[in-house]
Amino acid sequence: MSEATTASVQVQKSPASARWVTSIRTPVLVWLVIALAVAIWISLSDMPAEILTYREDIIYLGGQHVELVAWSGGLAILTGVPIGALLSRPAFQRVSEALLQGFNVGATIPTLAILALSMTLLGIGTVPAVFGLWAATLLPIVRNTYAGLRAVPQHLIEAACGMGMTPAQMFWRVELPNALFVIFGGVRTALAICVGSAPLVFLIGAGGLGELIFTGIALDELPMMLAGAIPTALLAVVTDFTVGRLQYYLVPRGINPLR
């Protein structure tokens, strides 16, 4: 059939490979510029050496930092996705719209305020820190899971139902896979918030790299402050990059607008 062959040619020269090239070229370019700036800075200043005197602190507090993020982010994904999925079920339709409105209001509350309230309720330490970060991370995940599942086209659900899938099969084989990209988007935003807020938990006594930053600012000790700020920034950028790559590779090609 001639139509089939012409279309196959079209598909083969589809810009997937070209897009991949640009999507990898841009970051490389940006990072080259940054690396260049850092190289110049290192060669002109003795600051890096001073920062490195905090090496042990960086490793210890960095570990703590990552642990806090892993706990709160992990818990937020493990709770947020099921909550969003539950709210998207027709049975909850009435409640969910109102609840989502509430969540939207909740999402405007600054993380520092959430941590402060968490501290008032639970005191200081790791538990209120993880709880506060979890609360701040949760909303985007719930919201995107809900929106992603609700955005699955009705005709796909009708086709699935008409072919004899049970409601559970429809959810696992059709709805969830097709919402995956949007859910991943929510996880990415949420983890960025989580990593970005993590330095603040030092304020409620949970340690982390924030300790170096806040203490450095308070003592006007620049190397100490940078010893916290640079790894924090790097961790945030690396986390975002990693989740972005995971989204690229884990979401199947058929529903991944990036591929």
Binding site: A192, V195, G196, P199, F214, G228, A229, A233
Partner: peptide
């Protein structure tokens, strides 16, 4: 993505 307190610093 850079945390605000790190940016301030």
């Amino acid at each position: 993505t850079v945390p605000s307190i790190a940016l301030f610093g």
